[in-house]
Amino acid sequence: MSIGENLAAIRSRIEAAAERGGRNPEAVRLVAVSKTKPAAAVIEAARAGQSVFGENYVQELVAKSAEVKEAVEWHFIGSLQSNKVRQIAGLVHLIHSVDRLSLAQEIDRQWGKLGSRADILIQVNISRESTKSGTSTRELLDLVRAVAQLPNVRIRGLMTMPPFFDDPEGARPYFRELRLLSEEVAAAEIPGVEMKELSMGMSGDFEAAVEEGATLVRVGSAIFGERHYG
C-alpha cells in the first residue's frame, strides 16, 4: 500500500475509535512520525493530505524541514537536550517531550530571543520505567507550576509513552491515567496553563488511546512502513 492509502486507513481507524469513545473524530490529530524517513516520504504524505509530522532528532528535523516546501507543521517528539534547543527555536509548532524545568527554561530563553512563545507538552513517565523520559506523576503539578512562570512558554497539555504490550489493551490504563492527570492539572487552575492536548498512542495502540481521550496520536510505521526509503 502507498503512504496515501496507509494514511486513509489510519484516519478511518481513528474515526471509528473516536466514535466508540463517544468523541468527535475531529478532536484527534494524527502526527505522522517521520524519523529516519527521507524528506521524499514526508512530501508524499503531505501531498496525500497529512499536515503534522513528528521528529525525534534535532539534526534530522532541521535538515528535513529545509527540504520540505509543503505547508506542514513540525512537532518535536523525542528526548530533547537543552544544548540543541537553539536549533529548533521557531521551527517547531509543538514540543511534546518537556520533562524538566531546566529544559523549559532553555526553551523560554531561545523563543524569547525570537520574540515568540513556544507551545509545549509536559511528558509524564507514568510507567516509571528507567528507560523512559518524563517527570513522575508525583512531581507533575510542581513542574507545571514552575514552568507556567516562564513568559515565553505555554503548556498546552501532557504526553506519555506506556510500556510496550503485544496487546494494545495493556496500554489502556496508562492512557486513562494521563487523562485523569490532565484533569487534575486543569482543576488546579494554574494561570496560563491549558490542558487542551493529550499526546498518547502509537502505531500499535493508538485506537485505545483515542478511546481514552488522546488528541494527538503519534503513528510512524503504520504510515511509512518499516522499510527504509532509497
Rank of each mutant, 00 (worst) to 15 (best):
31 V>Q: 00
155 I>N: 07
226 E>N: 05
96 H>N: 05
117 R>H: 07
81 Q>F: 13
112 G>D: 10
8 A>M: 06
15 E>Q: 11
118 A>W: 13
161 M>N: 04
211 E>S: 03
199 S>W: 03
92 V>H: 04
182 S>G: 14
26 E>R: 15
175 F>Q: 05
80 L>A: 08
30 L>D: 02
43 I>K: 13
111 W>I: 04
209 A>T: 01
42 V>K: 04
149 Q>D: 13
10 I>V: 15
121 L>T: 12
227 R>P: 06
15 E>D: 14
191 P>Q: 12
64 K>D: 02
189 E>L: 11
202 M>E: 00
59 Q>I: 01
56 N>T: 11
218 R>S: 06
131 T>H: 10
126 I>G: 07
152 N>Y: 15
174 Y>V: 03
170 G>W: 09
145 R>P: 02
99 D>N: 12
164 F>W: 13
145 R>Q: 14
195 M>R: 08
165 F>T: 07
100 R>N: 07
116 S>H: 14
202 M>C: 00
228 H>Y: 01
49 G>A: 11
23 R>Y: 09
10 I>K: 05
36 T>H: 01
206 F>E: 00
207 E>Q: 11
182 S>K: 11
18 A>C: 10
86 R>F: 03
13 R>V: 03
211 E>V: 03
200 M>W: 00
167 D>Y: 11
203 S>N: 03
115 G>H: 13
95 I>V: 15
83 N>E: 02
177 E>K: 15
222 A>N: 04
10 I>E: 03
227 R>F: 07
224 F>P: 02
127 S>Y: 07
212 E>P: 00
40 A>Q: 12
210 V>R: 00
20 R>S: 03
73 E>G: 00
63 A>H: 12
10 I>M: 09
199 S>I: 08
108 D>E: 11
149 Q>K: 15
140 L>W: 10
37 K>L: 00
195 M>H: 07
229 Y>G: 02
81 Q>Y: 13
66 A>F: 01
131 T>C: 04
57 Y>N: 02
133 S>F: 15
83 N>Q: 09
97 S>P: 07
199 S>K: 05
130 S>T: 14
47 R>Q: 15
11 R>W: 08
190 I>C: 07
190 I>T: 09
56 N>H: 13
132 K>I: 10
107 I>G: 08
40 A>E: 15
138 R>E: 15
174 Y>T: 02
62 V>R: 11
127 S>T: 07
151 P>E: 13
125 N>L: 07
230 G>S: 09
149 Q>G: 03
204 G>F: 05
69 K>E: 14
61 L>I: 05
182 S>C: 08
149 Q>E: 15
116 S>G: 10
149 Q>F: 00
164 F>P: 02
192 G>I: 14
169 E>Q: 15
46 A>H: 13
94 L>H: 08
209 A>V: 02
166 D>K: 14
